[in-house]
Design a protein around this nucleic acid. Structure first.
Lengths: 209, 209
DNA sequence: CTTTTCAGAGTACAAGTGTACGCACAACCG
DNA sequence: CGGTTGTGCGTACACTTGTACTCTGAAAAG
């Protein structure tokens, strides 16, 4: 006996299938595929829709890619923001940030790889999207550093520049991390923390000049 | 009237066609194509050989890619090495290094993009190749920093870690540089220099602890 | 109710892909 | 010299790719 099916609105239905496409792509990334070897037909098949129906949702694979980066970037950004603006349970803030970020990288390898990779992609749109993300994170971080320095009464020179350095290091280390067997990952974490502290020291030193 | 043709040895001939393949790929990269959209058939055609003859030289496109990275990486490494170990004509060494490296990135955009991009590639071989390059450069730099610090009698803590940071920043900045219109590039250069100096200061500060 | 809209399916096609197989012919080796 | 080796070519095959076109059926609009 068939259960009465809810009649769903058109736009809701459309949004759902669209998300199916996004999810299918994400799943494929998660299992190690690279985004630009992913074909329209393939994601369509994985999402359970006809290849030609893809066009009802995205004009391009690039369109899908941008949505993907955007969705994941938002999650990432939020995560860092939260760490910075809430109690860090006794851990130093630098340590908390590094650990949180790396944790995210590890549990979302597929998407992280994509973001990191597309930040160096040939497709200008992708690059810009990734760059925007990094810049947003860098701004967040810079604001925080300045505020925190003011509270401690330590003059901090070039907060934004320091923040840029930190983000660059975190992302570069992130990639290396994903290639590292689990039992050596701590070393990367400690190194990254050391690197960030070094930059903090340098920034403070240059603030006093 | 036909000029007498030199009879060429087999291995020399083979080496030549192999290089034709490499050059064809490099040329395509230089004109903006991304390596992994490059097909075997395409490079074969550009090199002026039959598609199936490709296999006489490389087992894979990946094989070609590795050769490409290797050749270009060597050039890059050498360039930096030279800057570090020779008179820098009055410029500070940091400035000289940054300017030389960025110059190289700009005049070899295709290859640079490839190296930078493949350092985050899905293909583990590529990643490792790029990582090897970065580590070599980092070692070179670390050695130099230590030696130079010894000469000045300044204790330098964690030279290698500092060098890693510097390389990460240089490569990240390199990508941004390539996306920047010519008249704004100086800003990137100055920022990078500032970032490296900051790290130096930090490293010195931590060396005294 | 009727009419319109539009997400999705199906078919079809031209173009491009990697590569297996066999052949030609010049360089090499004994 | 004659036999072997190996680079390069051409053909052929089985796929995969993006997408143009047409059709269907149900939700939305009137």
């Amino acid at each position: 006996m068939a259960i009465a099916l809810q009649k769903v609105s058109r736009q809701k239905q459309k949004a759902e299938t669209r998300q199916k496409l996004v999810d299918a792509a994400a799943a494929e990334l998660a299992s190690g595929r690279s985004f630009d070897t992913l074909s329209l037909r393939e994601v369509a098949k994985l999402a359970g829709i006809a290849p030609t129906s893809f066009y009802r949702h995205f004009h391009d694979m690039e369109g899908l890619g941008l949505t993907l980066v955007e969705q994941c970037g938002e999650a990432l950004r939020k995560r860092i923001h939260d760490v910075l603006h809430q109690a860090s349970e006794g851990r130093s803030l630098i340590r908390a940030s590094v650990e949180t970020l790396f944790e995210y990288f590890l549990s979302n390898q597929g998407m992280s790889r994509m973001i990191l990779q597309e930040s160096m992609s040939r497709q200008p749109e992708f690059r810009r999207a990734a760059e925007r993300l990094m810049q947003t994170m860098s701004s967040d971080l810079a604001n925080y550093l300045e505020e925190e320095a003011r509270e401690r009464g330590v003059p901090l020179g070039h907060a934004r520049t320091a923040a840029d350095s930190m983000v660059a290091i975190l992302f570069t280390a992130g990639i290396a991390l994903l290639d590292t067997p689990a039992d050596e990952r701590d070393r990367h974490v400690e190194t990254a923390i050391l690197q960030l502290r070094m930059i903090m020291r340098g920034a403070e030193a240059m603030g006093q000049t």
